[in-house]
Nucleic acid binder design. Structure first.
Lengths: 204, 204
DNA sequence: GTCTATAAATGGATAGAC
DNA sequence: GTCTATCCATTTATAGAC
């Protein structure tokens, strides 16, 4: 017995092990045997908590989506300048502070989307869609104040998110080891915000 | 025997079947049995053409990347206006004319990226990276003519691609059935180009 | 509740006949 | 080259003892 952590319920051990393995290797490649072993628990115990493999996977991924989808603030800070508010939003929600876990969730949800269609919707609603709505509400407010001029703020929100996220996330997702430094990413973010604000600012 | 097509080599039948099934269901879920059945061929015949499952998958996906990565034009048309050239680029390479097959290739490459790392690089180089370089060259030209003012044209190219691709591709990738019409997508594209050109135009 | 052992099914790969 | 039949490993899921 390798009971390092002082006292943790069997269920927690199973969840933790399943999380780790599913995110590493996806649904098919991860066996219930491997999960039981990783959790220091017998396979029968796994089945006493989760009816079968599909249920276990669904439960794990649902909670991962809920927890990693969106970090806290649900509005953009109205006290900051336009550029500063957007920068803060980009840093927190759609970009530079993305953890390896968030990246793995993204990849696994996408990979298993055919077998688990409702998972795609869960992820989408708690991640990109939520971020879009928050940003769109802010943009709409700025439009009504006459600061910005945008035809469709919802689409513009998605376009901003794409502009910030794509150059940073896609290479990483495809395993392209960019030799970008934090300073590089900071400059890219500044450029994105500059293009977006200049391109949407109301003509005075 | 269901030999509908007049005369096609066994190898072609296998490739075609494997293509279809791998793109539909990914690597693990697709069995060699299923491929043989779909191809109207015995399993032994599959193994006489392809050493094993990994080799078959690698060959299939490599050719899919080469064929669907990037459509023909390798420069932007210098005779068009800035906006028209960008619109044409966006339509051809990163957006609205994306086929279901291209979307499936994207998804499978991403999904199996851990087991087949070099596949990610193959896809990247023949798709997004190539598109980026073509666009970056065009932007650089426009900068040197004093039409645009951009600090880092390579990053800007990726940002433009993200702005165009994200709102359109991501929901589809996650199985979100957008009720967007072609007219909606056209308007979104126009808005993206407007934001980008206004945001990067040199101050006169 | 938890474990060891096993049943039932599936999948990758091969042997040998034609 | 192609087929049928089969081997062997692995995997999900369950039975029965403690």
């Amino acid at each position: 017995m390798n009971d390092t952590s002082p006292r943790r319920s069997k269920c927690d051990q199973i969840v933790e092990a399943a999380c780790k393995l599913f995110l590493e290797s996806g649904y098919e490649t991860t066996s219930m045997d491997a999960i039981a072993t990783e959790a220091n628990v017998s396979k029968r115990t796994v089945y006493s908590y989760f009816e079968n493999k599909e249920v276990l996977f669904g439960a794990i991924m649902k909670s991962m989506c809920d927890n990693t989808g969106c970090t806290h603030p649900d509005t953009l800070d109205p006290n900051l300048s336009l550029k500063e508010a957007l920068k803060e939003f980009a840093r927190n929600m759609v970009g530079l502070t993305q953890t390896p876990e968030q990246r793995d969730v993204f990849r696994v949800v996408l990979a298993e989307g055919i077998k688990f269609p409702e998972l795609g919707k869960t992820f989408w609603d708690s991640g990109p869609e939520l971020a879009k709505q928050i940003l769109a509400a802010y943009l709409t407010e700025q439009i009504s104040r006459g600061v910005l001029a945008i035809e469709d703020p919802e689409v513009a929100a998605m376009q901003f998110i794409g502009m910030v996220k794509w150059p940073h996330s896609m290479p990483e997702l495809f395993g392209i080891k960019g030799n970008t430094t934090p300073a590089d990413r900071q400059r890219a973010l500044d450029q994105a915000i500059s293009i977006f604000t200049e391109g949407t600012r109301a003509k005075s």
